[in-house]
Write a protein that binds this DNA or RNA. Structure first.
Lengths: 384, 384
DNA sequence: CAACTTACGAAGGAGCGCTTCATTAGTAGC
DNA sequence: GCTACTAATGAAGCGCTCCTTCGTAAGTTG
């Protein structure tokens, strides 16, 4: 008994306009006929839709390409450059920012290191530096940015308040959205980082086309993001994916096996220890390999819980340690196979460290589509 | 990048026809104006839709009701009695069957006991007895049944083959759909029982209106069914909800705490032991209460895993033991609260033993809606 | 320069939903 | 038994969206 509303004619047009925009996204200039074929509409109808989208400012015409047979076709393209999007990954130790056009094509990226225990002010300053650095790289003004999407550790409620964040002290009981809106004069969105990473891998990474995906964030901290039915699963209180909180899932302390491995030389800074162990394991060091084995033994418990519960098509291994996926994937697959009903595909992240920023951009792009038909919005703001 | 198909005019009509049928479902005869209001369509449009549905045989007119002011309105109703649906719960020890009209209103129910280790032939015979008993009760011929939906233990793939079923020996490596289609001359659907139970509680039970629901089947055997985004979640290989397979979730042996309680008198048949313990706990027997505590200690682990992972709005406690929900709910809530991020509502099943049959009926009803616009189907078969 | 290819644009038509309004079939009151 | 009132009906007309069709235009090729 979801919605019993019947559809109007205009709904149909809305639907078709949206599919048209989706068809143009990142596809370069397209002719009317090409668009018509992709959307399934007839050419005249497609023309009408295109005209309307041009009127609204979403689409523009580009000069026809010469050199082909017959009358040159007029070409349309999504006006990806009439505004910008920014994605920010607020990690424990690094703030990453990326600037993209409205297509989600990334134009510039920056990184700002930050202390895990930095104060709120230091953290916000680092965020601001990362974003402005990004804008400076491609000579873009903050006024031309339509939306900034942030991904961060912790449970963030629908209003953008931090409900829980053990890892980042500065986040405690914070109205994060409020703080960020004070700094940035545009739309501010906030999501959990693992969910954004899952989104990115689903859109352009290792899980493209899959309907149900489990994204494992493996790193100094553990997390999970779920795609179910092709959509990000948030949960009723936006608290999904927090299986690391369950002691029996054996995720919370799993990274310790890598940190405390005997192969790690004295004096290695604690944040580099795990990386050292993984590198040693790749070189065949038996002690390191054993530590990796114990790590995977723990990792597989929570992972098997998710796989048994959801029966996903793909499991993506992402996060800091996924750089060493070659060392981790084999043992993980072996142990998972023994524990689960139907073995999903287990793949390494293809986006690596950039998956959260990329996901933030994708999130902002999605948000953009939603705005196409908000009645109050007139023609889009035009830059240059 | 899901579907890039643009909508046709007829798609709109399809949508509206479907919402009209949904509006009529189980709502008794409705006037055009009432229907128009519910669907959001104008009266003339609603008329056209109604005419078409009458032509197709889904809807019929009933004589207007006298005694009201003004010109009497013509009334329409969904032709729920032009066919029948059967739902069957193939449990380990009981086969339950229910007959419903096309609205999903249940008209008759039967139960057939069966041995857990019965042969395949015995099991199929019991199923047949249950169904024909049900038909006899309401004097219905099998020929008037459009669809039979079965819910059973185990993992059933999309083709209806049993992939895994430890509990029921006869099910091993069986083409269950094939066998059942030999017996019943109508559409045969098969689903996992916990998923059907989840569906029923979501449609008409304790979880009505919730978007994300976890259904816990607690009984001699443990299981789970998930509703995510208002839809049943099946998983890529239809193997979702099998978290009981994970030893660390501590579900598999959990019922043993109730079976082996010292309060159970010597000579109690093993299948009644748990019920005895639960009854004793209700009466305050401290030994039984302690056994229940240990049971819940185990139960809560897998449950917390699901809640942390999915952050559902509601958790429904169903299955055989949920008759003793008064004994179980309190301890479960206490322990769950300590373990999870955001506490969901925890409710007892309102459908009890009937939830799987009911869910099977609901599943068949859903399937019916899907057939509304399959192009090959002409006007519906008419009974009497 | 003619022939060919390909896209454009205008015209006509069908389907769907909306609004409007005179008409109709009842009930209520005198 | 007649009139007034009420509420639904049915037909007409409009606007939107999409479709098909066909003559025309703007290029390339030989």
């Amino acid at each position: 008994m979801a919605d019993l509303r019947g559809g109007d004619l205009s709904r149909l047009r809305q639907l078709n306009s949206l599919t048209a925009i989706r068809a143009m996204r990142g596809a370069g200039p397209l002719t009317l006929s090409a668009l018509a074929e992709r959307t399934g509409l007839s050419r005249p109808s497609m023309k009408e839709v295109a005209d309307e989208l041009m009127e609204l400012g979403w689409v523009e015409e580009v000069p026809p390409s010469p050199g082909s047979m017959g009358r040159p076709a007029r070409r349309y393209r999504f006006r990806a450059d009439s505004g910008y999007l920014v994605g920010v990954d607020i990690g424990g130790y690094n703030i990453r920012a990326a600037l993209s056009d409205l297509d989600g094509v990334i134009l510039a990226e920056t990184r700002q290191p930050v202390q895990l225990d930095a104060t709120l002010e230091e953290r916000l300053a680092a965020i601001q530096r990362a974003v402005s650095g990004c804008l400076a790289l491609s000579r873009t003004a903050i006024e031309d940015v339509w939306t900034i999407a942030f991904g961060t550790i912790g449970v963030i409620d629908v209003e953008g308040r931090v409900v829980y964040s053990a890892a980042v002290p500065a986040w405690r009981d914070l109205d994060l959205a409020g703080k960020l809106r004070e700094i940035f004069p545009c739309q501010v969105l906030i999501e959990n980082d693992s969910r954004l990473a899952a989104m990115a891998e689903h859109r352009r990474g290792a899980a493209r086309g899959a309907k149900d995906v489990v994204f494992l964030h493996v790193g100094r901290r553990m997390g999970a993001g779920l795609i179910i039915g092709g959509k990000v699963h948030r949960g009723f209180g936006a608290a999904s994916g927090e299986i690391a909180m369950l002691p029996e899932a054996r995720w919370f302390d799993a990274p310790e096996h890598l940190n405390t491995c005997a192969s790690v030389p004295e004096g290695t800074p604690p944040e580099d220890a795990a990386g050292y162990t993984l590198a040693a394991a790749r070189n065949g060091d038996p002690v390191a390999l054993e530590a990796v084995g114990r790590y995977i033994d723990d990792l597989v418990v929570g992972t098997a819980a998710m796989v048994l519960l959801l029966d996903p098509e793909v499991v993506v291994l992402g996060g800091g340690f996924s750089r060493s996926a070659d060392v981790l994937l084999g043992p993980l697959r072996d142990r998972l196979e023994r524990r689960c009903m139907r073995m999903p595909e287990v793949r390494a992240s293809t986006l690596g460290d950039e998956c959260v920023v990329t996901g933030a951009i994708d999130y902002a792009v999605d948000h953009l589509d939603d705005q196409l038909f908000t009645p109050d919005r007139g023609p889009l703001p035009v830059t240059r």
